[in-house]
């Protein structure tokens, strides 16, 4: 029986990779899960590599490492290339604005989430791409309650609540019904 859920997110600094992990982690804590969220990053605030490894489980968590992600959110080509091989039974969600070259040889499911373009289209700027991706994840990750994920977004990001709510809905509806 699966005892833990693993989510890996990676991209550039400034895309909200850490915020995304923090929001999912906070939602999981609110639902009573044990949670770890490792983050690694380079020196640059913007443009450097960033990775979040989120694990949640009803049991205490020994290894906080994501070794076989259920979901891998790839927000740069470098991140996609570095971690795609970890995904076996899970799913890769990639933003085609950044991941411009797909490995068709992978056996796992790979779904494009054009979060950056959708953010520009809906809000005139790319800053809500992260919330759109969180909407997609709230739909896909069965262990998480979508309402709790949205509450966590509004708690962690104190500004632009209306835009974030709308971005969440846009993402939530992107891949159809849960």
């Amino acid at each position: 029986m699966k005892t833990r859920t693993e989510i890996l997110a990676s991209g550039f600094g400034g895309q909200g990779v850490v915020r995304l992990g923090q929001i999912l982690g906070e939602a999981a804590v609110k639902q009573g899960y044990r949670v770890t969220m490792l983050k690694s990053h380079g020196t640059e605030m913007r443009g450097g590599y960033v990775r979040s490894q989120i694990v949640f489980s009803k049991e205490p968590i020994d290894s906080p490492m994501v070794e076989s992600p259920d979901y891998f959110v790839a927000l740069s080509l470098a991140a996609y290339k570095a971690f795609k091989h970890l995904v076996k039974d899970g799913m890769i969600l990639y933003d085609p604005a950044f991941v411009v070259q797909l490995d068709e040889g992978l056996v796992c499911v790979q779904k494009p989430v054009p979060a950056k373009d959708m953010s520009v289209e809906n809000f005139g700027r790319p800053v809500f791409a992260n919330t759109i991706m969180l909407g997609v994840l709230a739909n896909l990750v069965e262990e998480l309650d979508p309402g709790t994920v949205l509450d966590s977004i509004l708690h962690v990001i104190p500004k632009y609540h209306e835009e974030n709510k709308k971005a969440f809905e846009v993402g939530y509806e992107l891949l159809g019904k849960r």
């Binding site: 949670v35 770890t36 983050k39």
Partner: peptide
Amino acid sequence: LITDGFED
């Protein structure tokens, strides 16, 4: 990983 990482 301890100081920068998040945990419940």
